[in-house]
Amino acid sequence: MKSKVNILEMKRMKKEGKKFTMVTAYDYTTASIVDNSTVELILVGDSLGMVMLGYDSTTGVTMEEMIHHIKPVVKGAPNTFIVGDMPFGAYNVSVEKAIENANRLMKETGCDCIKLEGGAEFAHTIEAITKAGVPVMAHLGLTPQTTSQLGGFKVQGRDLETANKLINDIKAVAEAGAFSAVVECVPSQVAKLMAEAVDLPIIGIGAGPYVDAQVLVTQDMMGMFDKFTPKFVKKYATLREDMVNIYNGFNSEVKEGLFPSKEYSFDIKVDGLE
């Protein structure tokens, strides 16, 4: 059985050049499967809005929905570091509200840290939350909660100006006290410079091979989500197709009278039933 990594170990892994991984989970069963694997971190992301709840974006996800999904993941993966996502509206109203919601997420779910989107403009919020005793993972590059401002789901940092902003952003969140950062949809060389600019671990998703760790959404990497597949996703399985075949097989066996057979039935003699 693996032992749960901690923040100091993650920083040491970066220093020693040891890669690690994070995947998403939104329920007890998936979390327990990840807990049996060698993956070090689970992100209960607001991506659950799209892959679990059928929303068109992550913006509509609420604090209540995040808490509802984080709690069973914590129960299912006691040996895995759990990251709880702060949804849109939970931290951008005021610093006081951000601290209140960060405290609530930690207290009500038992997760190991919170994650929030935003760079230098949210450095004061990150600093306040960390000073309040809550570990913070930042999220830079493509920030799904504010894709409308970014022109949609597009690669960020494609020119010198925006690349420089990303490098300044990672420095700002590091100085504010974030212990790590997710960097999403950024050119590989820009992500490399970001990773070299700070001592906190950079977890990439569509950020190339030069960062310290990688994260993928489980439903994407397992081939379960069919609405779209980002360029950076490698499908390690085709579970959607497999599951459809299994459901079809069940349906056919029931209609043909093959299931349930004696093996799956209780043939118990009940005295006097005649």
Rank of each mutant, 00 (worst) to 15 (best):
M1I: 05
S3A: 11
K4F: 08
F20H: 09
A25S: 12
D27S: 08
Y28S: 07
A31K: 14
S32T: 11
L41V: 00
I67V: 10
K71W: 01
P72T: 05
T80I: 07
F81I: 04
F81K: 01
G84H: 07
G84V: 08
D85M: 00
A90Y: 14
K97H: 06
A98E: 12
E100R: 12
A102T: 08
K107D: 15
E108M: 08
E108F: 09
C113D: 00
E117P: 15
E117F: 13
A123G: 09
I129D: 06
T130A: 02
V134M: 09
T143G: 03
P144R: 12
F153K: 09
Q156S: 06
T162K: 14
N164W: 11
L166V: 00
I167P: 01
N168M: 00
V173Y: 08
V173L: 07
A181N: 03
E184H: 03
V186P: 02
L193A: 03
L193F: 03
L200S: 02
I205Y: 01
D212P: 02
D212W: 05
V217L: 07
K227D: 12
V233L: 12
R240F: 15
N248R: 14
G249S: 06
F250C: 11
E253S: 13
V254F: 05
K262H: 11
G272N: 07
